[in-house]
């Protein structure tokens, strides 16, 4: 473990702020899927770049933790590097790129392919915690709709897709019902990842810094993607196999290789892909 940055408390935030955050997190765990307002602090990274996730991670991080940070499924995307560096600087904790070694995984836009365990926590960065925001911009009003569990607006929105296009056209940030009570934004993960949230063994925490909301899904909680009996939810992925590891199950990034229509598909989860490639080499 490196020595944390001089002049700053462990994990940057002062202990009183961490206590406020932990109380908010406990409340969020107690009411799965319900957005809890909190006094988000101004962080040294910009709003919209993961300040909510960073505050949640800072509140739960201990010196013995091993942190993994991913953005778009990858450990080596610039903002993931920046956030990992931040915690290395201010907390001096061990970091890893291996999903199975991490005790806390902070993520933007993906859930790792490997199933997570009870002793792991997944922290999501959330740009817009309000699933109804595109349908009703006023928070005073959406708060009322949540209180009444009045989610007709969202059902109509999904139905309109079916009427116009033949199926639901929401490809990411696909709304879910948590514990049969609250409509929740899963953050802008691809709809492909939604089923992983259902009865996940790991605790899932969601931090929205700019919008100042935290919510949570406790382990083994029911999480259902919104759908209709005659139009069941279907996750989307590119039909190709990964060009590196050959996986036909993982979520793929499309990479343009030239200006003549050349493209390859590779796993978005770099650890999953790397582990498979290493195993294949080991066998060969």
């Amino acid at each position: 473990m490196n020595a944390p940055l001089a002049g700053y408390n462990f994990a940057y935030l002062d202990e009183a702020t961490k206590r406020m955050l932990r109380r908010t997190i406990l409340k969020a765990v107690a009411v799965p899927g319900h957005q809890i307002p909190f006094g988000a602090r101004e962080m040294p990274l910009p709003y919209g770049w993961g300040t909510g996730g960073i505050q949640v991670t800072a509140a739960i991080l201990g010196p013995a933790d091993t942190l993994k940070v991913i953005d778009q499924g990858a450990d080596d995307t610039t903002n993931a590097i920046s956030i990992r560096r931040f915690f290395t600087r201010v907390a001096g904790v061990a970091t890893t790129e291996r999903t199975e070694e991490a005790t806390i995984i902070q993520t933007r836009h993906r859930i790792p392919e490997a199933a997570l365990r009870e002793d792991q926590i997944l922290v999501y960065q959330v740009p817009q915690p309000e699933p109804l925001s595109k349908l009703e911009p006023r928070r005073a009003e959406t708060k009322r709709l949540h209180a009444l569990a009045d989610y007709g607006l969202m059902h109509v929105r999904l139905y309109e897709d079916i009427a116009r296009l033949g199926h639901i056209a929401k490809a990411y940030d696909y709304p879910v019902m948590v514990n049969g009570r609250y409509l929740m934004s899963p953050s802008p993960i691809p709809a492909f990842d939604n089923p992983k949230m259902h009865r996940m063994a790991a605790l899932q925490l969601f931090g929205a810094g700019r919008e100042k909301r935290i919510y949570a899904i406790p382990p083994y909680t029911e999480v259902r993607s919104l759908d209709f009996e005659d139009h069941p939810f279907r996750p989307i992925r590119a039909p190709q196999a990964c060009a590196l590891c050959g996986s036909r199950e993982s979520y793929l990034d499309e990479v343009i290789t030239d200006d003549r229509g050349g493209r390859v598909f590779v796993c978005s989860d770099t650890d999953y892909c790397g582990t498979r490639v290493a195993a294949q080499k080991g066998v060969a």
């Binding site: 778009q72 995307t77 610039t78 990411y172 802008p188 691809p190 979520y251 793929l252």
Partner: peptide, 8 residues
């Protein structure tokens, strides 16, 4: 990066 959302 928004590769994942864009891909979907």
């Amino acid at each position: 990066p928004h590769y994942v959302d864009f891909q979907s």
